[in-house]
Each structure stands twice: as structure tokens, then as C-alpha cells.
């Protein structure tokens, strides 16, 4: 292949296709930073899947218990963090107890615990009730083998969580099954719903073993997993689905329509307007590259 002559000036087409990487990265940093300083209102129509998930959560009776699978860490905080925040706020405000378990990452249980404590304090600061560990929520820890754990939860949740202990308000450890959250749980359907917040394939593991057993399933996933998980929403294996940053903003929008006067918006509202600029940059970059290719081809022809 002939090497290009460095003395020959680049054609317009070649210039358009060879912008330095550094310039592209700098423009990306500007596009994802500058809009954060401005309050840009963006209209939003939530998707049907997000509406179904919100309605499923909103119709849970107060005092009931749900299972929350928290399979996310700060690496995907931009999306799953916002989803988790929205979920916990809804559960707190509806007075629904929840048990949090993890099957994906050893770091995830501590991330979830820290986030719940932070959200609870924030709710209390704004006049809400918050949640108390042991009485309103328990942390069930990490289960490395997602397949075996999901099977056992389906067969007998008391055996799945029987060995787990959590901290009581008096500082001592007690069996999680004796907490007010889980004391009435004997079978899978004693949980009113299972909501999984995940950025990994634990979504399919959960659907394989827990769908169709009389327990409503909801999922909150990253954008990458949105299309593949939507397939299960389409076949009604999931009662609702929230995917990606758009999903976060959908949930916050729906919360704002229901929980008036409370803190509803978080990462969705903060990041969504900026996302527009980043996506627009991507579109422009692809167009510029293709225009450059077409000009080059014309020039050679």
C-alpha cells in the first residue's frame, strides 16, 4: 500500500476524517461539562414501561415487604444510582419495607447501604419519615452464586436468607428473618414484588428462575441492557422496566406527578439536558466523518 506523501496538503475530505483525537476529547469534555452549570428544562414523556413500573410500585400496600436486588456499584452510578435513588424514595414514601440482597459484586452491598442511609437522612431533612434499619429495611449481603440463590429464593426464601444477620437498633446482631421486615415472609409470594437494579446479567438469571411464579418482577437496568431486557417486558415476564438515564428521568417525572412538594428530581434532571449535547456531538461527529468520506471519494473519482 502506498504511503501518503507528507508534503501533499490534505484534501478537505481527508481533513474532515482526521480531526485529532485530543480535539475530539476536549469538545466532549466541554459538551458534558458546560451544560451542567445551567438549569435547562427538558420536556419528557415517560415510556409505557417506566409508567408500568411506577404504577406497580405505587399500588403496593403500605406495610408490605418487597425484595430489592441491588447489583450495581458506583461504576454505573450515572444510571443505576439514579434508578436506585428513585426506587428507595418511592418505597420510603409508600411505607413499604424492603430487604436488599446482591448477587453480582462484593462491593454492591456496601454501596447500597451507604446510599439508603444517605437517602433516608435526605428525606428526614425535607420533612419525610426516612427508614430505619432493621424495622424498615434489612441488608442481606452478597451471594456469589446468583443461579443457586435465585432458585432457593423461589423455592423457600426463609432458607435462602436464614443464615443472614443484620444490625438491630440496639446495636446487637439478629437473624434477618426475625426482623419486622421479614418475620411474615414464609414463601416467595409473601413478597409483594421483586425489583432488581442491575448493570449485569443477573437480570436474565432472575427472569429464568423467578418469573412466572406469582411474584411481580420489575427491573431497573443500564442503557446497554435496555434493548435486551425490553424483550422480556414485551412478553410480560416483567411488570415494568426502567432503562438508562432516560428511564431515571421518566421515574423522577412520574414521582413529581404523584409526590407533590417533595424531593423528586435527582440525577435524571441533572444529567438529562447535558446528555442532549453529548448525543448531538456524536451525531455531528458521525456526519462529519461520513461527509469527509464522500468528499474524498468524489475527489478521487
Amino acid at each position: 500500500m502506498a504511503t501518503p506523501d507528507p508534503t501533499t496538503p490534505k484534501s478537505l475530505g481527508e481533513k474532515l476524517q482526521s480531526l485529532p483525537r485530543g480535539i475530539l476529547y476536549l469538545i466532549l469534555v466541554i459538551c458534558t461539562s458546560v451544560p451542567l452549570f445551567f438549569n435547562i428544562p427538558v420536556p419528557n414523556e415517560p415510556t409505557q414501561a417506566a409508567k408500568d413500573l411506577f404504577n406497580a410500585l405505587n399500588s403496593l400496600p403500605a406495610g408490605s415487604t418487597v425484595l430489592v436486588g441491588s447489583d450495581w456499584t458506583v461504576s454505573t452510578r450515572g444510571e443505576t444510582g439514579g434508578e436506585f435513588d428513585a426506587l428507595i424514595r418511592i418505597l420510603m414514601r409508600k411505607g413499604i419495607k424492603f430487604a436488599v440482597y446482591t448477587t453480582a459484586d462484593p462491593q454492591a452491598p456496601e454501596v447500597a447501604r451507604d446510599e439508603i442511609v444517605m437517602l433516608s437522612e435526605d428525606e428526614k431533612k425535607h420533612g419525610g419519615k426516612g427508614v430505619e434499619r432493621w424495622n424498615d429495611w434489612v441488608s442481606l449481603g452478597f451471594f456469589p452464586n446468583a443461579e443457586a440463590t435465585a432458585n432457593l429464593i423461589a423455592a423457600d426464601p426463609t432458607k435462602a436468607f436464614g443464615s443472614k444477620k443484620d444490625v438491630k437498633p440496639d446495636g446487637t446482631l439478629g437473624s434477618a428473618l426475625s426482623s419486622p421486615v421479614l418475620k411474615d415472609i414464609k414463601t416467595l409470594t409473601d413478597f409483594k414484588m421483586l425489583i432488581l437494579v442491575t448493570g449485569t446479567q443477573t437480570s436474565t438469571v432472575t427472569i429464568e428462575r423467578l418469573s412466572g411464579k406469582g411474584l411481580p418482577l420489575g427491573m431497573m437496568v443500564t442503557g446497554v441492557m435496555g434493548p435486551e431486557t425490553a424483550v422480556y417486558y414485551d412478553s410480560r415476564q416483567l411488570n415494568g422496566l426502567c432503562a438508562g438515564l432516560k428511564g431515571v428521568y421518566d421515574m423522577e417525572t412520574l414521582m413529581d406527578g404523584t409526590f407533590k412538594g417533595q424531593v423528586n428530581f435527582g440525577r435524571g434532571k441533572l444529567y438529562y439536558p447535558t446528555l442532549h449535547f453529548a448525543l448531538a456531538l456524536l451525531i455531528v461527529a458521525v456526519i462529519v466523518g461520513n461527509v469527509g468520506m464522500m468528499i474524498s471519494r468524489k475527489g478521487k473519482a
Binding site: S33, F37, G78, G81, V224, G244, Y271, A278, L282
Partner: peptide, 20 residues
Amino acid sequence: GSTVMMRFSLLIDQMYFIWM
């Protein structure tokens, strides 16, 4: 399209952390 949204969301989260 969804992957792009996710990766940009993570970057925006980092930019928010630094700048805001």
C-alpha cells in the same frame, strides 16, 4: 444508541462530580 447513552451518562456523572 442505548450503549452510547449509557457511556455518556457515566461521563456526565464524573463531570458533575468534578465541576459541581
